[in-house]
C-alpha cells in the first residue's frame, strides 16, 4: 500500500490517493487541520468525515487521509482501529448502542439487550439482513440517572423499558 511519506511517490500518485476523497470532505478535513498546530490532530475528524459520508471507513480512505495529513497509512489505521466510534467494516443504516456499564446493569440493561436482539434477530456485532440496524454494546453513556440507556445513531434514550423497544425502533427506517 502506498503511503504519503514514501519518497518515490509521484505527484500523480499522491493526487490519486487524496482525490479518492469527496471534494467536500477534503475541504472539511483541510478546515479541521487549521485548528491545530500539527495536521495529524485532524485524523479523528478526517475519519469521522469519511464515515459520515459512507457509513464506515472503506480501505481506500486510509491512504487518502494519510496523504492529506502527511502521515503514514499505518498511523491512520492505528487511530482508526483504536477508537470504537470509527467503523472499519460496513454497518447498517442505523447503529444501536446499548450501554452495559454499571448504572444500566443495576437497572436491567440485560432485558433491554435481549428484547432488541430478539426483535431484530441479531447478536452484538451483527447487522440485520436488510441492512437497517447494527447492534453494539457501549461503555457508560453518562446518562446513569436515566438507566437503562441506549443510543440510536446520535440520539440518547433513557430510561428505556422492554415495552418501549418496538416503537423506538420504528422511528428509524
Amino acid at each position: 500500500m502506498l503511503t504519503a511519506n514514501t519518497p518515490q511517490n509521484t505527484d500523480t500518485q499522491q493526487q490519486t490517493l487524496r482525490y479518492w476523497l469527496h471534494p467536500d470532505d477534503q475541504k472539511t478535513i483541510l478546515h479541521c487541520i487549521e485548528h491545530y498546530r500539527d495536521a495529524r490532530a485532524a485524523s479523528i475528524d478526517a475519519l469521522k468525515t469519511v464515515q459520515q459520508r459512507h457509513g464506515w471507513v472503506p480501505d481506500e480512505a486510509i491512504p487518502a487521509i494519510a496523504e492529506i495529513l502527511g502521515i503514514s497509512s499505518a498511523d491512520v489505521e492505528g487511530v482508526a482501529t483504536f477508537y470504537n466510534m470509527i467503523f472499519r467494516q460496513p454497518v447498517g443504516r442505523h447503529v444501536i448502542k446499548i450501554c452495559d456499564s454499571i448504572g444500566c446493569f443495576l437497572t436491567g440493561y440485560e432485558d433491554i439487550a435481549s428484547a432488541v436482539q430478539q426483535q431484530l434477530g441479531i447478536a452484538y456485532g451483527e447487522t440485520t439482513a436488510d441492512g437497517r440496524f447494527t447492534l453494539l454494546p457501549i461503555s457508560c453513556l453518562g446518562n446513569c440517572d436515566k438507566g437503562p440507556s441506549l443510543m440510536i445513531d446520535q440520539d440518547t434514550y433513557g430510561p428505556v423499558t422492554v415495552t418501549d423497544i418496538p416503537d423506538l425502533l420504528e422511528r428509524y427506517i
Binding site: 456499564s101 454499571i102 448504572g103 461503555s139 457508560c140 453518562g142 446518562n143 446513569c144 440517572d145
Partner: peptide, 11 residues
C-alpha cells in the same frame, strides 16, 4: 471526556 461509570455531571 466524561465516561466514568456512574458519572453524569459534566454532560
Amino acid at each position: 471526556d466524561e465516561m466514568e461509570p456512574g458519572t453524569f455531571k459534566d454532560r
